[in-house]
Amino acid sequence: MPRTDLRHNDQARQGASSSMERRMSTPDSDIKVEVRNLTKYFGRLHVLDDISFNIKRGEFVCVVGPTGCGKTTFLNLLTRIYSPTRGDLFIDGESADPKKHNLAFVFQEPSAFPWLTVEKNLRFGLEIKKLAKDVIDERVEMIIKMLGLQDLRDRYPHQLSVSSEQRIIIGRAFAMHPDLLLMDEPYGQMDVKLRFFLEDEVIRLWQELGTTVVFITHNIEEAVYMAQRILILSTKPTTVKEEVVVDLPRPRRFDDPDFVAIRNYVTEKIKWW
């Protein structure tokens, strides 16, 4: 059942220009995000090697890979915190530009602003974008309701539990109605129960808002539980080793034999020893 889709193309490695032409020649309105030949060197250190893949509109993609494989570098390239050495990221066919496109990011570390209340944290990104006040009100109300934060709206982050704080950040990201939402191991530091709870919450938000999500994790079970498609990264220099489509019905069950089969398959592929 897992589908392999290796995209090694030596010609594309020669440079971005040839791949650009190829991109232009195959317009596809269903593709939201297009990553082409993304390559990154830090000095001589080759971190990312020719990563290419597409993400469909409203798709939920999980990215898994061995420890230290450059997942964070990969994400920082997508958000434009770093510039790629070669290759590019396209959103709706245009080179991704934070000025034009809406990128949202859920960091691994708690990143709610301690000086703002829950509600003001949720409003922050929308106010930065200078949206109309009634639009902001409406979106924030909706997110507060969906996340069940009504009673906490005037609290400060330090008064909340770690999981509630992470929910603010997730809410803040979804409230942007982003073109692309990137999540970097958002549940890395949480216990199993909270993890299950928040995984379902993200799935619900995603289903209701139709956001395109890239979710990075080192937890294979989590990836199989959430993703429509899993990208497996290799060790450094990192490239996409394989894509696995997960077409199990939701809500998924951890003990479903199909689920276990996919999980085992991905685990097998991720092994680098």
Binding site: P98, F105, S111, I128
Partner: peptide, 27 residues
Amino acid sequence: KIYLDVGTMFNANARQKLFKIAIPSAL
């Protein structure tokens, strides 16, 4: 840095980063 990264991600301009992130965090 993470607070400023959040600003970068939301595409905050230099003035917004100063007044909405840096100064409040330095209070």
